[in-house]
Amino acid sequence: MNAKIADRIATAVFVLIALLLVFILVGLVGYLMWRGLPHISWHFLTSPPAFSEAGGGIGPQLFNSIYVLFLTMLLTVPIGVGGGIFLAEYAGDGWLTRFLRSAIEVLSSLPSIVVGLFGLLVFVQYTGWGYTILGGALALMLFNLPLMVRTSEEAIRSVPRDQKEASLALGVSHWRTITSVLLPSALPGIVTGAILTAGRAFGEAAALMFTAGMSSSRVDFTDWNPFSPLSPLNPMRSGETLAVNIWKVSSEGLVPDAREIAAGASALLVIVVLVFNLLARFLSRWLYKKMTASSS
């Protein structure tokens, strides 16, 4: 077999693999949409779930998902970027750094159900909080930190060294070099890491079942004081998220339209994740432009 034929065969195989991937993606998303979209309505999105009759919605769950995600990102991004900065710019090559790296590796390979059980022990029982949205966000932070640290470190390291040297040679301090030269250039990479993290957090069920709980406490959507017990913004209430709800209604749902609700919620989940991705991409490009060619 000569090189030309081998090359053609290899190309064909790779094209086939690529097509297969696209087919799986399109098929999956298409099926979810076909099954789920007909059930999504304004009523479905805004009403609370029903107990035994058909026609319940997923309003609180949708809100909880977004709120848990928001709290998770609020915790994960600063700590993750900080860790990335430390590993890329300050950590030497000593045993401590190596230990830290393997700790991060281990943390990132933990199954999410284990993180959930750890969260149950610490954020639910040890603290005495019970099932809380905050506990769920903390568990998700543990779950997502390794990814955030690693992508931030990669993004900072990928900034050409001569950029850093240029800044240091001007007598600018290391810290200011990091914040004003390295981070703006690394921003698209960091935002990509945050998107991956957010996608994982939004779809995560196992880590949240035992931390944020499988029931949505009664909330009053007219009360936005985070300290009031009925407020949707109160982080100390239990809050079932969309992904947990999908798992719950399809495994033990008592309502007659459990399948439809699960399908609708799944489609919604996928749509929200897609919208998030697009938004974050847009945001990253906008921020990049703003930070690199600012007219201060």
Binding site: A166, V181, S295
Partner: peptide
């Protein structure tokens, strides 16, 4: 190698 910052011309100079 010319290594301007990933910033505007003005910012490149005003930064330091």
């Amino acid at each position: 190698r010319p290594n301007p910052f990933n910033k505007s011309i003005y910012e490149n100079i005003a930064f330091a």
